[in-house]
């Protein structure tokens, strides 16, 4: 690993991102707009958005980061730049961490905007410390989304296929994570499955952040699970970046 190469890669990815205004908007604004829309549709049902909004905030960063990173890394594989980079002194880890660094930065800004709006304009009352817990959770989930997108890009040959992966990864988790039906109320089979899905812990952590108004031990455990999943996805992603091919 080489910090100069990692840093140059992160800076390069950010430059590419900056050129693509539409993607920047999607990354930074879309989650907040969706949350705002949710807030609006639940505006006549008191207390409903307070429950569902933060949980949704736990899922959204995953979705947007997943799409953007899976397509970005797939493009790197397909245009030959990846193969070329692998003939240079760059280490696989430099590439992954470079991407992680760039998208991690975007993730933090995204989480900051969405959490800030949720707690102010959208009126979710979680006290400042609860807000920090939500921000931390949203950031961790976003990093996990980026790592999962990197890994998933290995299973797609085209951008078209990469986008199709998203519902396959996300929709089952969306149904089982406790957003629609609290996890305790799922039957034992579904509940057991949901225990294995990382986004369940994102939703748990968000719920806990609002209800307890602070960073509790349970949130710490949930974030460790999501962070661990991100690490596993990165390691698996590294394994798919083989220097030599047949």
């Amino acid at each position: 690993m080489n910090p100069r190469i990692t840093f140059a890669t992160g800076a390069r990815v950010l430059t590419q991102l900056r050129r693509d205004h539409r993607t920047v908007v999607m990354l930074l604004v879309l989650p907040s707009v969706i949350l705002g829309l949710m807030c609006w549709i639940y505006s006549d049902i008191p207390g409903r958005f307070d429950q569902i909004g933060p949980r949704m905030l736990g899922l959204m960063p995953f979705v947007v980061m997943f799409i953007v990173t899976s397509v970005a890394t797939l493009r790197e594989r397909r245009t030959g730049t990846l193969e070329r980079l692998l003939t240079t002194p760059m280490n696989k880890l430099d590439l992954l961490l470079g991407y992680g660094f760039a998208f991690g930065l975007v993730a933090i800004v995204q989480a900051g905007i969405a959490t800030g709006l949720t707690m102010t304009w959208y009126g979710v009352d979680a006290e400042t410390r609860g807000g920090w817990a939500m921000f931390l959770t949203a950031s961790t989930v976003a990093v996990f989304g980026a790592a999962a997108g990197l890994f998933a890009s290995a299973f797609a040959r085209t951008e078209f296929q990469a986008v199709q992966l998203m519902p396959a990864f996300v929709l089952p988790q969306f149904l089982l994570c406790g957003l629609l039906v609290p996890r305790e109320q799922l039957n034992s089979t579904l509940n057991a499955i949901s225990d294995f899905l990382p986004l369940s812990y994102a939703v748990d952590a968000m719920a806990e952040s609002v209800e307890r108004g602070g960073l509790t031990g349970q949130i710490g455990r949930d974030l460790a699970i999501i962070g661990g999943s991100a690490f596993l996805a990165l390691a698996a992603g590294a394994a798919t970046l083989s220097r030599q091919s047949a």
Binding site: T9, R12, T15, R19, G80
Partner: peptide, 19 residues
């Protein structure tokens, strides 16, 4: 194999940074 969304100079500087 170059990055279409980077300028000519940015491309060459990036690959230069690798070495």
């Amino acid at each position: 194999s170059v990055y279409g969304d980077l300028t000519v100079a940015e491309n060459v500087r990036y690959f230069g940074a690798m070495v």
